[in-house]
């Protein structure tokens, strides 16, 4: 049981939860959206500066639990300089992994550091913490500056 807990709160997650990367506003962002989990109060805003197909810069602001904050932080690191199509593919792979729909080795490998969040699948009430930044990103890329809600 304790190993489950270590799976969930891996060092990299605790680190990104406490010291999130890319926690800032991008003044020149041309895509942004806000995500909100009304059940726990987690709130993130994702900023993307899209240059052609490329995510030239990506950041987030907001406050949430360690899982949500680490997920947003790792997401921004992973996607910077990738193109939109790749970002969308990663979104689908990430959701499949954290919701326990796939255990595929290649998928986990493709996700790199993001795979550290796979442990959340054993905590059904915490899955939304990990997926909130990603759903927010999807909304931003679709250029719908609406508030995304987990509920």
């Amino acid at each position: 049981m304790i190993s489950d807990l270590a799976d969930l709160y891996q060092e990299i997650i605790v680190d990104h939860g406490k010291r999130p990367r890319n926690l800032r506003v991008i003044d020149v962002a041309n895509r942004t959206a806000e995500g909100f989990n009304p059940l726990c109060g987690d709130r993130v805003r994702v900023y993307v500066q899209v240059d052609g197909e490329r995510l030239a810069d990506i950041s987030f602001t907001g406050s949430g639990c360690a899982i949500c904050t680490a997920s947003a932080s790792l997401m921004t690191q992973f996607l910077k300089d990738r193109d939109e199509t790749a970002a969308h593919e990663t979104f689908e792979q990430f959701i499949a992994v954290v919701t326990g729909q796939t255990d595929d080795e290649d998928t986990l490998t493709a996700l790199g550091k993001l795979a550290a969040l796979a442990g959340v699948r054993k905590y059904p009430v915490r899955v939304k913490c990990a997926t909130l930044p990603w759903h927010t990103l999807e909304a931003a890329l679709q250029d719908t500056d609406n508030v995304v809600s987990t509920e």
Partner: peptide
């Protein structure tokens, strides 16, 4: 530390 992280660890 966010209360939800506190709650998950306490549950353990």
């Amino acid at each position: 530390i966010h209360p939800h992280d506190v709650g998950t660890i306490l549950d353990h």
